[in-house]
């Protein structure tokens, strides 16, 4: 029974920690963030399974986390507010050639992060970006500025 309770607590604790670590542990992971995700994940595994390493115990933990994940996904699909709490909301980082400073600071983003996403789209100048949007999954969407024709 304790394994199930620990799995529930571990799931929500990890969800909170990942949310508090902002959205960078999503798609914009650097080696630094990989360390955090693996370290936190490893520690949670130890706490959830405890000294009982039987297949039954580990299976119960996996089933509990799987069921919880399904419930959270189901609730997210039906409640926009719950979705925003779990995944966050898309945020505009750059708009019409100007940084949205409040969001950049709040999300601990640097211009280099935006330019990394821009280069993936074949854009090599910040002035060619019209919008940069931090998506809920942690990726940065880039929308090109239209070239003015003479």
């Amino acid at each position: 029974m304790f394994t199930i309770l620990y799995a529930v607590a571990g799931y929500f604790f990890l969800m909170l920690m990942v949310r508090l670590l902002t959205r960078r542990p999503g798609a914009q992971m650097t080696m630094f963030e990989f360390v955090i995700v693996f370290l936190v994940g490893g520690v949670i595994i130890l706490a959830v399974t405890g000294g009982d390493r039987s297949i039954t115990n580990c299976g119960m933990a996996i089933l509990t986390v799987g069921l919880l994940h399904n419930i959270v996904a189901w609730t997210k699909a039906r409640s926009a507010r719950f979705g925003a709490i779990v995944d966050g909301t898309p945020l505009v980082l750059l708009k019409d050639g100007a940084w949205v400073d409040e969001v950049m600071r709040g999300m601990k983003m640097a211009p280099e992060d935006i330019m990394a996403a821009a280069r993936m789209k074949g854009i090599n100048s910040i002035f060619d970006i019209k919008y940069a949007i931090l998506e809920r999954n942690g990726t940065i969407s880039i929308i090109k500025a239209k070239k003015e024709t003479a």
Partner: peptide, 21 residues
């Protein structure tokens, strides 16, 4: 945003979340 890109940004929620953070 600017009546041209459908983003669904909720800056009000995000400000509350930063306070919670």
């Amino acid at each position: 945003i600017n009546d041209e890109v459908a983003v669904g940004e909720d800056l009000g929620f995000q400000r509350k979340w930063w306070k919670f953070e």
